[in-house]
Design a protein around this nucleic acid. Structure first.
Lengths: 209, 209
DNA sequence: CGGCCCTCATGACATTCGTCATCGGAAGTC
DNA sequence: GACTTCCGATGACGAATGTCATGAGGGCCG
């Protein structure tokens, strides 16, 4: 639809660490007359390098990649290539990620459950200057709301994620064990969790860490 | 390669909850002369239903799907359609999963980082009766070894995963809090972890839970 | 400037948790 | 039958943790 009569095709870059998906997607999107996949990357840093060379119109970034994740890449691209629109594709989208992505200037946020045709349409939408956010993910994000955690609380929760004892967290954060306990206690209370481990899970699920 | 001169094509079923990947893969594999994608499914239960109807030669199953996961589907298929070879495709493969998969009669185990062409070759290999396991995943599985946990220990660790307090775990398992602590203490010691939370993480990472 | 929030810390207290010893019963193996 | 392993439980003890009060310093905003 909207066959883009004879203009130049939209230059697309794909970044996804899973070769299977990236390759398949490149092939499918390449079938569309008005899209051309000009670059592929298997990691965040590679995506940045490729973008500098090939200067795509739209960068389709997987959220979870080794090294830099999709949102980080989008942040860098925004500074280096302001003309390049960015969009995020993700498997399981957590509410907080969407907010983070929008803050990074991302113009499209799509789960991997959409079809390739639908993705192609969304790429056109994004290229045209509009935004697109998957309705379900948007609803989740709205219902989730903002993070109630302060920066330190989130940081310490992150360190607590692996199940490490307080002493180790304190050491890694260069803080007193007592202080760490206070922060984690505050975070746990804010999240309504039973203990810091459950709190860390909740925060992670909300995309707040 | 090996163009399968004029025989019947290999009938393939794809099961993956991510429409984007499934569709793209179906399109790419369909390009191979000797492969025909005869069914697609977005969940484990759907995969079983489709398999009963379309009786594929090879079932390509994503490991993580809502409801039944890939290995469970493989187990059922083995009983219902002995002639159907099964293979697992996975994003991040944990050591324990491979063992579980092989136990379920799976004949191929591949990460999503392979290319579509490579996957096509592996489908042919599996259809021919051989097995294929990604070398890196195999190495991980060998170095990881068997689970040292007893059934209850693993079960309680699983309940402990969310960070729930002992009391809640005990209630859910219909056990005494003291007993729960003992089992979790034993599991934690076996895994060399600092506490049950870290132990749960380790066990999950090894695919032992 | 006076508040307000965040940061970092200390001390105290009750609770939870990890660890150990010990017990009985069930199941499987040699 | 003797041995081993697992399951389930109890009691006890020290250490780790959660919770609260309190305080000092810094930054931001009206």
């Amino acid at each position: 639809m909207i066959p883009e009569p004879a203009g130049e095709p939209i230059r697309v870059m794909l970044a996804d660490d899973e070769h299977l998906i990236r390759g398949a997607l490149a092939a499918l999107l390449g079938l569309e007359d008005d899209l051309r996949v000009v670059a592929e990357a298997a990691s965040g840093s590679e995506a940045l390098a490729m973008a500098r060379v090939h200067r795509p119109d739209v960068a389709v970034l997987d959220l979870q990649m080794p090294g830099l994740d999709g949102v980080m890449v989008a942040t860098s691209l925004r500074a280096e290539l302001p003309g390049c629109r960015t969009m995020i594709v993700t498997g399981h989208g957590r509410p907080g990620h969407l907010k983070r992505a929008l803050g990074a200037g991302v113009r499209g946020f799509v789960p991997k459950t959409v079809s390739a045709q639908r993705l192609a349409e969304i790429i056109r939408t994004v290229h045209g200057g509009s935004r697109y956010v998957d309705p379900e993910l948007a609803a989740d994000a709205i219902s989730a709301g903002d993070s109630p955690l302060t920066a330190r609380e989130a940081e310490l929760l992150e360190l607590a994620e692996g199940g490490a004892p307080i002493a180790e967290i304190a050491e890694r954060a260069s803080l007193t064990p007592g202080t760490v306990r206070n922060y984690l206690s505050a975070a746990t209370a804010k999240l309504g969790a039973e203990n810091r481990h459950a709190a860390a899970r909740i925060a992670r699920a909300q995309g707040w860490l």
